[in-house]
Amino acid sequence: MDETGKELVLALYDYQEKSPREVTMKKGDILTLLNSTNKDWWKVEVKITVNGKTYERQGAVPAAYVKKL
């Protein structure tokens, strides 16, 4: 869990989004888990830093590609 009490997951593999509802992640990324009720796809929040600014993006990733921490 992070400092706000939200559950975290670890990306076990790289994943490139294939639709606007998904998010890209790299192996080793730590993501915030938002919903894991679907056994195949979990909704997560990814933090992306671009030019020193951090953005948050929500989307789905394959459940088999992440592990709860």
Rank of each mutant, 00 (worst) to 15 (best):
W41F: 07
T32L: 14
Y15T: 00
L8G: 01
E56D: 11
K68W: 06
L33E: 00
P20E: 12
V66I: 07
M25N: 02
L8F: 14
L8R: 11
E45D: 02
T24V: 02
L12W: 03
K18E: 07
V23P: 01
K6N: 09
Y65H: 07
K67S: 09
D2A: 14
N38L: 07
R21F: 15
S36Q: 10
L8Q: 10
L34S: 01
L31E: 04
E7W: 12
Y55T: 12
E22N: 02
V23N: 01
V44D: 00
D14Y: 03
V61S: 01
M1W: 14
Q16N: 14
N51A: 10
D14M: 04
K39D: 11
N38E: 10
S19C: 10
P62W: 06
K67I: 14
Y55F: 12
T4H: 13
Q16R: 10
N38R: 08
S36T: 09
E45V: 12
D2C: 15
Q58F: 06
D29Y: 03
A60V: 15
V9Y: 05
D2M: 14
P62H: 04
E3S: 14
G28D: 04
R57K: 14
V44F: 04
L10C: 12
G59Y: 05
A11L: 03
T37I: 10
E45H: 07
Y55L: 10
Q58E: 09
I48E: 09
Y55R: 06
L69W: 08
P62A: 03
L12R: 03
L8K: 11
P20I: 09
L31V: 05
R57A: 06
K68V: 10
A64G: 09
A11Q: 00
T37S: 14
K47M: 11
G59H: 02
V61A: 03
P62T: 04
A63F: 02
R57M: 07
K67R: 13
K6Q: 10
Y65A: 10
T4P: 13
Y13T: 07
L69Q: 03
A60Y: 15
S19E: 06
L34R: 02
T32S: 08
T4W: 13
T54P: 07
V44C: 03
K18M: 10
G59T: 02
E3N: 14
P62Q: 03
G59S: 02
V9D: 01
K18T: 11
A63L: 01
Q16H: 12
Y55C: 11
V50E: 11
D14H: 04
T32C: 10
E17D: 04
G28H: 03
V50K: 10
A11H: 02
E7G: 11
A11S: 04
E7T: 12
T49Y: 11
T37F: 08
A60H: 15
E3F: 14
E56I: 15
Y13S: 08
Y55E: 10
S19K: 04
V66R: 00
K39F: 09
V23H: 02
T49H: 10
E56M: 15
G5T: 13
E7A: 11
L33K: 00
G5E: 13
K53P: 02
Y15R: 00
Y13R: 15
R21Y: 14
L33W: 04
N38W: 05
K53F: 11
N35P: 01
V9N: 02
A64W: 08
T54Y: 08
E56S: 15
E56V: 15
K27H: 05
L12S: 01
W42I: 05
L33N: 00
E22Q: 09
S36P: 06
P62K: 04
G5D: 10
V61E: 01
L34W: 03
W41I: 03
Q16V: 15
T54F: 08
R57N: 05
V9F: 04
M1L: 13
E22L: 04
V50G: 05
A60N: 15
L33I: 03
K53N: 11
R57G: 04
L31T: 00
E22G: 12
K53A: 11
V61N: 01
I30Y: 04
A63Q: 04
M25W: 01
G59D: 00
K18N: 08
S19M: 05
G59A: 04
R21S: 14
K67Q: 12
D14W: 04
E7S: 10
V46M: 09
V44N: 00
M25S: 01
V9T: 02
I48N: 06
G59F: 08
V46S: 06
G52F: 05
L8C: 14
I30A: 01
N35D: 15
K53Y: 11
L12M: 09
E3L: 13
E17M: 11
I30V: 11
E45C: 14
T32G: 06
K39H: 09
Y15V: 02
K27L: 05
M25P: 02
N35F: 05
V66G: 01
K68P: 09
P20K: 09
K43I: 15
W42T: 01
I48T: 09
V66E: 02
V46D: 00
G28L: 03
A64C: 15
K26R: 11
V44A: 01
V50W: 07
E3A: 13
W42R: 00
G52W: 03
S19F: 05
S36L: 04
L31D: 00
I48G: 05
G28N: 05
G59N: 00
M25K: 00
K47F: 09
D14S: 08
L8D: 02
V61W: 03
K6P: 13
A63I: 04
Y65M: 11
N51D: 14
N51Q: 09
Y13A: 10
D2V: 14
T24P: 06
V61G: 02
E17P: 14
S19P: 04
K26E: 05
Q58A: 09
T32Q: 08
E17T: 07
K18R: 13
K39I: 08
D2G: 14
S36N: 07
I30S: 01
E56K: 15
K26M: 07
T37N: 12
S19N: 11
E17I: 06
L69Y: 07
T24A: 05
W42P: 00
L8T: 07
P20C: 12
E22R: 04
K39Y: 06
Y55I: 13
E45P: 00
K6H: 13
G59W: 06
A64Q: 11
I48A: 06
L69C: 14
T24Y: 03
L34E: 01
N35S: 12
E56N: 14
T32M: 10
A64R: 13
N38P: 04
K43G: 08
G28V: 03
K6F: 11
V66A: 00
G5P: 14
T49A: 07
A63M: 04
V9R: 01
K26T: 08
K39P: 13
E56A: 15
I30K: 05
K68N: 05
V9P: 00
W42F: 06
V9H: 01
V61Y: 02
L33F: 04
R21C: 15
M1G: 14
W41Y: 07
Y15H: 03
R57L: 08
T32H: 09
G59M: 09
L12H: 02
L10E: 10
Y65I: 06
E3C: 15
V66K: 00
P62S: 02
D29H: 03
G28E: 01
N51M: 09
P20H: 10
L69S: 02
K18G: 06
V66M: 05
T49L: 10
T54G: 05
L69T: 04
K26C: 11
L8N: 05
K27C: 07
V9A: 09
V66L: 15
